[in-house]
Design a protein around this nucleic acid. Structure first.
Lengths: 207, 207, 207, 207
DNA sequence: CATGAATGAGTGTTCATTCAT
DNA sequence: GATGAATGAACACTCATTCAT
């Protein structure tokens, strides 16, 4: 209703937040802030200011803070979902695709791993809101599981519990993200981290 | 007036909270609550009430909420440290010790993985407080790394970056914890989870 | 787009709200809502929604909320005025006319007694707005007073302060309304209430 | 618990609000303000300021605004109850006692008639809070009804529905209060009003 | 050792009102 | 004639913290 989506260049959707409609701008900014500081530590006012609008404007579009949070997270997850889907749709060997995926996600500020983050903030959300989040999360997992399943069928990797393998993969990526985020000397750069993580992970999948 | 502790169902009451001195009681209870709900969502008042004392009493022992948090976390980490140290000090094969460690920690409500938790709440702490936490965390890691190093020297596992391996191990354990915590069907019980996780992890360490 | 009025149970919908012009519709609906919940507890938005228009539309017709309130109340009072005038214009004995008036008003959701209601909300109105209200109220009183005066002249009732008598009459009607509105067992139905009230009131007017 | 009632001279409890404990002070002031301007139009902050404390202090004693309101009203009603009881307990003729009661209440800023007032603000209260109010109101009515009943038994007045008669009496007093409050020329002073009202009312009770 | 009282600085949310279209 | 977008000013309520006793 309040959406007037005026195009969206598929290539690099980063630059020029000014072009977004106000509600989209709020969504993007809120998502960034919530991820950076956590739900509790971002007053609605801060989101508003970062968007050059007033608190009341935020409430014009999103009825409650929790709803804004939900919407922002869902949008984020959808972006991740798409990016993941796109990478895994190529037809190179799974190992290559997983490596690429790792690189991409270790570079992104928005981690693939909303899991932890959501769990922390799950208490403010209504059951329905949580449900939506779970579904969105599940979709992302399914993309991974599907790719793993195919690789098993093709004999590219050994038979494993695909759910487990998907979880483990994301878990290791999250570890990478965190070590990159804080100044740990474990990894120097995303690329190196991706390689090391995948090399380690892959051993567990090998025939 | 005597404390009349009317039980508190969640998380087994650490045998005989009544016997602890007030400051220890506060520490324990605070630790439990912070872990359950997160730093932001636990008012000092709540800690106080759960201890049958007043807010002012909490402040009598701990100058600020952040300090209480720090102290509670350090105590927790110390307990984990000790437990970990104890398990890894035995002289069975590393794989067995890691399995046991996994079992123990997947059963505990207090996860071995404070890493994530600390990162969330890191903004309220002073640099000094963070420093202490880092050190405590580091100690836990070192126990793992030491065990891994020895196993490498003994040829029990292949040569790997021990820091990386320790991180990966904890990362997978955390994944286990989370899947056990929310109702995911991935694992049915801690024991099974421990086995599956270790089996997966170990493949990456094998010669 | 057509109005799709999905019924609104409380207070019979004043036959065919759809036919009214928008400004009249707003007036009617606002009147009903203000009476039901009180000025303060009816946001302009609520009036708008109940009319299937937007807030801005309400402001298009009425410059401020207070003005809308004033207009709605005046319209209401005018209706009451007319109804009262009509009943009291008949030439049956005063007692009969007062009884009929009582019945009619105890059945109406919109009480004859705006007095109290206005007093509550008098602080938001401008002096001029209050003035108009006072005048409208006064007109209603005058109809009663006129009838009382005539009855005195005709010897139908004893000599009393007509202003006082009019006030007392409305006061007792209000009491009736309230006892009917809340579930008090004092009265079972409007008709019975009217009879009882008039019987009591009349004794004070008798020669 | 938070009450430390340090005496209370039975004679004239008006003067010297400073002697009251903070919670009592808040109660008194809140009562006065709510009666003057209505629940909605008195921000908690205003109550606080009028007491020379901060908003937070008000909330220290009363969990919500509605609770403060309830407590203040109950206290008021209790005072009215006591005053009424005291006056009606004397053993002069009912007419004299009712006259005195009328005088007293027409002079008081705090009207005997909370009925209307409560009805307006009833929507913010919980059912339980409303219940308490109703009970307190009922008690006041019972004092009146009891006196009326006795007068009937003694043949001082005719047989009437005592509930009705009590309601009517309060209704007329309220009318008096309102006409005294706004500048209506109907009454010049409380004493005169009391006399006129009682004279009118009494005719309906006479044998 | 422990507490009751008090507070300052938020923080989510509401709402009357304006204005360009 | 009607509206979507935006806002400023309130306002209820929370909470970490202080302090005299």
């Amino acid at each position: 209703m309040k959406h007037i989506n005026i195009s969206r260049s598929l290539g690099r959707p980063k630059r020029s937040e000014q072009e977004q409609s106000t509600d989209e701008l709020i969504l993007t900014v809120a998502g960034r802030l919530f991820m950076q500081k956590g739900y509790q530590k971002v007053p609605v006012e801060e989101v508003a200011k970062a968007c050059n609008v007033t608190k009341a404007t935020v409430y014009y579009y999103y009825a409650t803070k929790a709803e804004l949070f939900t919407a922002a997270m869902l949008a984020m997850m959808e972006r991740i979902h798409q990016r993941t889907l796109q990478i895994l749709s190529e037809d190179s060997p799974l190992r290559e695709r997983f490596l690429l995926l790792a690189e991409v996600h270790l570079q992104a500020t928005t981690s693939i791993d909303l899991t932890t983050f959501l769990r922390e903030n799950h208490q403010v959300l209504t059951t329905q809101q949580m449900q939506k989040m779970k579904e969105a999360e599940e979709e992302i997992f399914q993309v991974l599981e599907f790719a793993l399943e195919k690789a098993m069928r093709d004999g590219e990797i050994r038979k494993v519990n695909k759910k487990f393998a998907a979880n483990a993969y994301l878990s290791l990526l999250r570890m990478g993200n965190q070590n990159l985020a804080n100044g740990s000397e474990l990894f120097k750069d995303p690329k190196g981290a991706a390689i090391e993580i995948l090399e380690f992970y892959w051993r567990s999948l090998q025939n």
